[in-house]
Amino acid sequence: MKDVAAAIAVRDKRVLITRRAPGQNLEGLWEFPGGKVELGETVQDCIERELAEELGIEVRAGEVLIESAYHYTGGAINLIGIEVEIIGGEFELTVHDAYQWVEPLALREIELAPADLPLAEEVIRRHG
């Protein structure tokens, strides 16, 4: 099972989500941005690296909020939701074709990647 870090960024009572671009795995689905934890990397280091690479933003990683195991056709992942604070940069999309800030309750109306659903419920519980 692969560990995958996912950013939970909340600003002005809204949470950041991104949509996977055409041609990407899970294309068209919304998610909390992030990526695979590399060997020897902490989940906090991972989320800071991934958001710099995929979104062009600098974040400060905080605590782990929730973990969610999910079995996709291509393999199982352990999705680790990490609280982050955006501290710099401008959004530049690479593997995503859109991003938006949404109210937590709106997450229930958006087509999220399946592994992200428990994270969405935790965001709603904490910030909804």
Rank of each mutant, 00 (worst) to 15 (best):
M1F: 11
M1R: 07
K2Y: 13
K2C: 13
A6Y: 02
A6M: 10
I8Q: 00
A9S: 07
A9H: 05
V10T: 01
V10L: 08
R11N: 06
R11T: 13
V15A: 00
L16G: 04
R19T: 03
R19S: 07
N25G: 09
N25H: 14
E27C: 08
E27V: 07
L29F: 11
E31A: 13
F32G: 00
G34E: 03
G34S: 04
G35R: 01
V37F: 05
E38I: 07
L39A: 14
E41W: 03
T42N: 04
T42S: 13
Q44S: 14
D45E: 13
C46F: 03
I47E: 00
R49E: 12
L51R: 01
A52P: 03
A52Y: 05
E53M: 15
E54T: 11
G56Q: 07
G56F: 05
I57Q: 04
E58N: 11
R60N: 14
A61P: 03
E67M: 10
H71G: 15
Y72E: 10
T73Q: 15
G75Q: 02
A76S: 11
I77Y: 02
N78H: 08
L79E: 06
G81E: 00
I82Q: 00
I82N: 00
V84L: 08
E85T: 14
E90I: 10
F91P: 02
F91S: 07
F91E: 09
E92Y: 09
T94K: 08
V95N: 12
V95D: 09
V102R: 00
E103P: 15
L105V: 11
A106H: 08
L107M: 06
E111M: 15
E111Q: 13
A115Y: 09
A115V: 06
P118L: 02
P118K: 03
E122N: 03
I124L: 07
H127V: 10
H127P: 05
